[in-house]
Amino acid sequence: MKIIDSWRIGKKYGEVQALDDLTFSVNESEIFGFIGPDGAGKTTLFRIITTLLLPDEGKMRVLGVDVVRGFKELRRKTGYMPGRFSLYNDLTVQENLEFYATVFGTTVKENYDLIADIYSHIEPFRKRLAGKLSGGMKQKLALSCALIHKPSLLVLDEPTTGIDAVSRSEFWDLLGKLRKHRITVVVSTPYMDEAMRCDRVALIQNGKILSVDEPDKIRQGFSRKLFTIRSADKYSLITAVRKYPGTLTAYPFGETVHITFSGDLYDDSLFRYLEGMGIKDAVISEAEAGIEDRFLELMEKGATA
């Protein structure tokens, strides 16, 4: 059985098409990521999955149940962590956890083994008010609260936004451990690099899915040969390289510029050209495309199509 089966889901807010014809499915026990910028439609989609919004078009079954008709049943079986951590800042860590446990008809004790890995990080602070926790600790508490009723499906909307790199990395380690409890995780993030931590990802932009696959396969989907080129003067480099006739695309990527050529080839004329533009220190090498390169390529195709 598919954990989520979405067929041509569409949602409009007034004139704005927030979601457009989304068809995808999520398998049991996988970590499925929706990767895309703010405003791509991730939150709207997650609210449909958690029965908080009704789709305008299409059908969606979650855990085999229709999201529109079966919302009561689904609400028991799903764990949801909204974008803003849904914690009560004026309650302590322990009070938050106990409240959510009782509301979902269970006790902290009953499912403690499930959250032990996560909760053990914050248990020393259980008497502290949730509002006084750091971002990383809040996120762990919110995750514990969303997990406490042992949901079959865990829906996490941008759990790592605004969290420091160390906590982010820990968080993904913790999500990985949930696999052994056979909990399916659907997670969204604007950070491209986090795609690699998912089993499968959907790249989403302007309410449309650009691609769904394993992250490595998405990466390999990059259709051209990718090169990186670097120089001390990045701004001159990128303007110059763009003007070079053989260049197809050129994007700044951190310290370097990612570049593709027509025919996937370049020759010495490139260096002569750059030298003519006053750039003498350019170094070029072939590189493996990342998720972000592929995302850029897909966006460009979307723009020209």
């Binding site: 914690l87 009560y88 509301v103």
Partner: peptide
């Protein structure tokens, strides 16, 4: 405002 309503709605309450 704090987003906790989303979780309450999703809960069996």
């Amino acid at each position: 405002e704090f987003g906790t309503m989303e979780v309450l709605l999703v809960s069996p309450l």
